[in-house]
Design a protein around this nucleic acid. Sequence first.
DNA 1: GTTGAGCGTT
Length: 249
Amino acid sequence: MSHFGKAGPPDIRDTYSLLVLNISFRTTADDLYPLFDKYGKVVDVFIPRDRRTGDSRGFAFVRYKYADEAQKAVERLDGRTVDGREIMVQFAKYGPNAERIQKGRIIESSSKDRSRSRSPRPRHREDYRDKDYRRRSRSRSPDRYSRDRYRGRERENRHRSRSASPDRSRDRRRGRYEDERRSRSRSYESASPVRRSPSPKRSPSPLKPSPKDVSPDVRKRSPTPKSVSPRGRPATSRSPSPRHSDAED
DNA sequence: GTTGAGCGTT
């Protein structure tokens, strides 16, 4: 759906797509259109939305008619604060139908001319699913803790140099990404699938629990429930049955 | 009410 109400992409013959990232979730195409249209002729503005909820994904595609205007918009709107969020405008790298894009311009690889370049790779389906799957997992930041740590460090960095250069944003994101990746790798290596046993009944060895594991008080308290549940059942003691102890967990 | 790396629809 495009912002103009027409079905699908209007006409992508010589248009230059810009990718607008880091926009607010409330920002709509109607809000971006006038902003981008001021710097050139905007052919189409499209904001991908979630199919289930319909919420914006936080980025938009602005299609310009001329490259110079698109470039101008990139240099003008990149880093600008829109709706309280610093947006990032850059040329689109991938096309809507997995078409290759050069400098934001869509390069029709094979649609009418298939004999020239043969690329029998129906990957669009898989790519689409893959990206969709990624979005599902996006729900919330699973590594939010790690990112918070880095974010705190960034804050100090930003504190030192208030002036921000347009190139810095790239390095910043990339550096964080690498750190995140390394952190994940380390997590996978270090983190073992150890499930904390909620019940201390689980003995580490199949043998009978050594007296070191079981405190003498516990042993003495086990057969003597000084506390009775309101229902009249000895709830304080877990399960007097030794063979039932495993099944309970 | 929340979220935040990334590349798109009939």
